[in-house]
Write a protein that binds this DNA or RNA. Structure first.
Lengths: 209, 209
DNA sequence: GTATCCCCGTACGACGGCGTACGGACATGC
DNA sequence: GCATGTCCGTACGCCGTCGTACGGGGATAC
């Protein structure tokens, strides 16, 4: 039984509901088949466990971003891929939403700030790669990230109100189109084989005579 | 001392941090200068108080939407006004964010679902008034609402990462432009003196002859 | 004056969570 | 055999909160 085991168990407890309050020593000890005696050998107090769990979460999220944003060369496809991927994961892991709700906690606030800054930087860079100006790229990055957070919330708390299946795919395309301009009908990036038309109705029908 | 007083105090407690857990009988009693004796005369148990607070919150939010969406005739300006107004309030009242984090609570889930449905309907109607198709209007409504939720979170947990003052006004204009098409450069709403160009590069230049 | 009822304060028990004290099992070194 | 150090279980005190029991003030009716 190591400190890492406790940290992972704390994260698991958060994942399964209750937010930060789910990090309670005795319930987690029971879940691990251990007792408080073990815990207080590895940690000074509950706050230390919270901190360890937060550090672990931050590391996982950072690696996740790096993995998600890495391979794809085309910036347009990168944004698309990132949005799909990240929005799918967040729906079934309420940990991030729980942390957002505890932003008044100083440790949590610090973690959120670092993770958010990192993500926004990555997003802004993606938009810069699309040719947008510095401030415009930052605006788009903020807008994209706000949309991501909101979508994660909706997916978790009122999934019925979000489109499903194919409809959701079209919706996401519509959102992404409004973020990255619109995808040029001439230089369409292959991934979506067919219904690019559905999103083609986006905000910018004009543009090419 | 009425039941309403307790419900309002419960809401106030939530406003000031701690989310649903902030609705604790004894602290609220102290804050009201009363005791549990009074509470258990008006309510059966804590759950009843939570329910009363939720009902009160739902009523307030519903009236708020009605007031915010009512007067303005031009749909474009309505969206603008709504976005500005709602985004400003949400930043300094974490109650909604706290409720989102407790979406696993059945009562909370029901309230969130009703309020969200209502808001999305209003938003979709606004976009329909702009001439969008049914599904397109619903997509835009969802996108706008997701953006609102995300922005509220960012404003509360990492306000430093959001633009401030004039910059934020430009950012919001950029977001709204990408949602409602673009604001017509001929009918520019005066406030922004100069750099309206920054958002003018939005997704849809065409549309109006 | 007193009976009644509404409203509330006080005192109590129970529970769950934190943190501490202490002892004990077990391996290791010598 | 014995000492030492690591790791953990047990038992305890403490606190905050929920819910209940009970008593009492005070207004009103008559």
């Amino acid at each position: 039984m190591t400190a890492s085991d406790w940290a992972e168990a704390a994260l698991a407890a958060m994942r399964e509901g209750g937010g930060l309050n789910a990090i309670a020593i005795e319930p987690i000890a029971t879940r691990l088949g251990a007792t408080k005696g073990s815990f207080y050998w590895h940690f000074a107090n509950r706050e230390a466990l919270v901190e360890a769990a937060l550090a672990r979460w931050e590391r996982l999220r950072t690696e996740e971003v790096a993995a998600a944003v890495g391979p794809e060369p085309d910036p347009r496809a990168r944004i698309r891929e990132l949005y799909h991927r990240v929005t799918r994961d967040a729906a079934r892991d309420p940990t991030e939403l729980a942390l957002l709700a505890h932003a008044d906690h100083p440790r949590v606030a610090a973690v959120i700030k670092r993770v958010t800054t990192h993500r926004l930087d990555c997003l802004s860079r993606l938009f810069r790669d699309l040719g947008l100006s510095e401030t415009e790229a930052r605006y788009r990055g903020l807008q994209a990230y706000s949309g991501y957070l909101g979508r994660a919330h909706l997916a978790h708390s009122v999934p019925d109100l979000l489109p499903h299946g194919e409809d959701d795919r079209r919706y996401l395309d519509s959102v992404i189109d409004s973020l990255i301009g619109t995808h040029r009908p001439d230089a369409d990036s292959g991934a979506g084989t067919d219904t690019g038309a559905g999103s083609g109705k986006g905000p910018a029908p004009g543009r090419d005579p």
